[in-house]
Every structure is written in structure tokens, then in C-alpha cells.
Amino acid sequence: MFRLWVKLIDNNHLLRDTVICDDTVDTRTHKVMNSIEKACYELDLSKPIWLDNIVKDFQLHNKCRFGKDAFIEEISFDYMEIQVLEEDY
């Protein structure tokens, strides 16, 4: 099972979070993208843009932050952080 933790952080405080589980037979990239889409729908957000530095952080650490510059719409928090909790190999 693949699990992705999505957190909304403002002033170093956790505002909201959700864990998205995906047990489909799909590529890791598709699981990440689908999980982010589900989380954004659940948290009533637009999907963020994957900037180069965000991609690099995610590839290195299985964790990254989407700041205000990664969203087209105005956001009411400092950043959205995603972290892979569990992966199936």
C-alpha cells in the first residue's frame, strides 16, 4: 500500500492534514499525483505546481513543501507539505 501524508502549515502550526492511501497497481509517479489530487480535493485546494526545487527535494527525501509560489490561487497558510509514509515495492 502507498500512503501519502499531506499537511497544511501556518506559522509552524498544523492547520489540517490528511493521509491518502492508494493500493492500485500503478507507477509511483501516478500514485503521488493521484494522491495529491485527492488530498487537494479533500482540503478544498487547487493543485500545486511542481517547481524544479520541489521535484528535487521530493526525489531526495520523499518529502517536500509547496509554498505560496506553487499555487495559482491565494492560499491562507504558509505551505503545504507532503511526505510518503509507506510505499509498496
Results as ranks from 00 to 15, higher is better:
55 V>N: 06
57 D>E: 13
46 S>D: 11
62 N>R: 14
75 I>M: 06
40 C>D: 08
72 I>E: 15
38 K>E: 04
47 K>M: 12
31 K>Q: 10
46 S>A: 13
31 K>Y: 04
37 E>K: 11
30 H>G: 08
67 G>P: 01
78 D>S: 02
45 L>Q: 01
65 R>A: 05
43 L>V: 07
36 I>L: 12
63 K>W: 14
76 S>C: 11
59 Q>M: 11
69 D>C: 14
62 N>H: 13
37 E>D: 10
31 K>P: 00
68 K>H: 08
76 S>L: 15
65 R>P: 05
30 H>C: 06
31 K>C: 03
44 D>N: 07
75 I>E: 14
68 K>P: 06
44 D>R: 05
36 I>E: 09
29 T>Q: 12
54 I>V: 15
42 E>C: 04
35 S>M: 01
64 C>K: 04
51 L>V: 04
56 K>Y: 11
36 I>H: 08
37 E>Q: 02
43 L>C: 00
39 A>Q: 07
38 K>P: 07
31 K>M: 13
51 L>D: 08
48 P>C: 01
65 R>H: 06
57 D>W: 03
76 S>N: 12
32 V>K: 03
69 D>R: 13
47 K>W: 11
59 Q>H: 07
78 D>R: 02
74 E>P: 11
33 M>N: 14
58 F>K: 04
60 L>Q: 15
68 K>Q: 10
34 N>G: 07
32 V>P: 01
34 N>S: 15
67 G>S: 00
41 Y>V: 09
67 G>Q: 05
38 K>Y: 11
68 K>Y: 05
30 H>N: 09
44 D>V: 03
60 L>H: 11
48 P>G: 02
35 S>I: 00
60 L>Y: 14
40 C>S: 02
57 D>G: 03
72 I>W: 09
66 F>I: 02
76 S>M: 13
69 D>P: 01
60 L>T: 14
65 R>M: 12
53 N>A: 06
48 P>V: 00
76 S>W: 10
30 H>A: 12
70 A>C: 07
61 H>L: 00
38 K>H: 03
62 N>K: 14
43 L>I: 02
59 Q>R: 13
75 I>L: 04
29 T>E: 15
68 K>F: 09
49 I>E: 09
72 I>P: 02
53 N>W: 14
31 K>D: 07
64 C>H: 03
48 P>K: 09
31 K>F: 01
71 F>V: 09
49 I>V: 13
35 S>P: 02
64 C>I: 09
65 R>V: 09
30 H>K: 10
69 D>W: 07
67 G>E: 11
47 K>F: 00
60 L>W: 12
48 P>T: 11
36 I>C: 01
54 I>S: 03
59 Q>L: 04
57 D>Q: 08
77 F>A: 04
74 E>C: 04
62 N>F: 03
44 D>Y: 06
51 L>W: 03
33 M>P: 00
69 D>A: 09
58 F>H: 04
71 F>Y: 15
56 K>N: 11
44 D>L: 02
